[in-house]
Design a protein around this nucleic acid. Sequence first.
DNA 1: CAGCATCCGCTTTGATACTG
DNA 2: CAGTATCAAAGCGGATGCTG
Lengths: 215, 215
Amino acid sequence: MIRVSRSYGQLCGLALALDAIGDRWSLLIVRELLTRPDGARYTDLREGLPGVATNLLADRLRDLETGGVVRREEPRPPVATPVFRLTDRGRALLPAIEALAVWGGERVPTTDADAEFRTRWMVIPIEAMLTDGRPDEPPVTIAIRTGDEPLAVSVGGGDVRASTAAHDREPDLVITGPAKPILGIIAGKLPAAAASSVGVSITGDRGVLERIARG
Amino acid sequence: MIRVSRSYGQLCGLALALDAIGDRWSLLIVRELLTRPDGARYTDLREGLPGVATNLLADRLRDLETGGVVRREEPRPPVATPVFRLTDRGRALLPAIEALAVWGGERVPTTDADAEFRTRWMVIPIEAMLTDGRPDEPPVTIAIRTGDEPLAVSVGGGDVRASTAAHDREPDLVITGPAKPILGIIAGKLPAAAASSVGVSITGDRGVLERIARG
DNA sequence: CAGCATCCGCTTTGATACTG
DNA sequence: CAGTATCAAAGCGGATGCTG
């Protein structure tokens, strides 16, 4: 009944990391929790992890809890349901996940039209790949309308932050269309001029795109 | 007979990366090849991957070749054996592997005394965790004597490079002892003064340790 | 309904043996 | 040396059942 995920038994940082988060679905669970700072319920996680078997999700959450990556918070007596959050150690996986996401993002399949998509999945690559190139200018916001929910990107003070929460104010730039080309445009790999030809509409201050593109 | 490693089917950079290198042993194979710029033969890889089943190693090498991470170079007609190398795309995994190795390295088990170890496995964490803090000073070298083969660390010009090749000249610092405390001392987590109490002997210019420690 | 646990068929893994 | 072949055991994914 014990669930000890098989260890590589190697005195090596990478092997030890893979002992902890190398199982199938583990890093994707961490991805979900990274974009939910307030924690997530079991069903939230299932929604963000299409294809996961429910028993595997339960197993992995236990494993990650044992590994010190995830903390389960039991609800207060009356009602409510458990909430899962990342520990500090879990959040420390961000650089590794960003690096993997950037590496994998270079090969986004143009075929495979029926792949699952959640707008939330854009948060990590956006924060990893973009930067505020003009930290002294006043902050601006971008609204991205694609997928299952809108995305708000805040640019200012040298930082780029993305979240599925709503903006405080009117966005300076609004991007609407299918996710794949939007990612290309944001990453600067697809020129904004070609947006309409791939079904993406951009309204507002396009200069913001230059401000956030990496040198 | 087709070996399509199960895809997550998610339009997400991280999921795509895991589709390519998320299978068991895959990233450890890349680790081995990263520390062998001249390529490795099948048996070299087996030596550096204790515990891998030979059929799995063959399978993974095929998968990684299909995924564009590894290239197999067949030998010239007379004799010789195939050599496996990383492609450019495979080498591009270095930042992700470094991030994972650093994360995993923070929890090196003090128990598990019978874990496998190869000196070569120190190359990536050393290059990831150390820096040349005095790039204008003349280059220095460190010899690390532990595990199955000696390790040569070159510090200079702002870079820290490690390899299992021999030094060109006499090392400025020699560190001898068991791998675990040596890693701690190099990372600056274990004071050099405590070295002898954990079986580590340090001879030469200890100032080098301050030169390479991260801020 | 949220949050799992159980069962079941299939695939992957790992240990060993064997071959060109 | 560089793998392939075989097979038991574990892991995975899907469906379904149970409990508060």
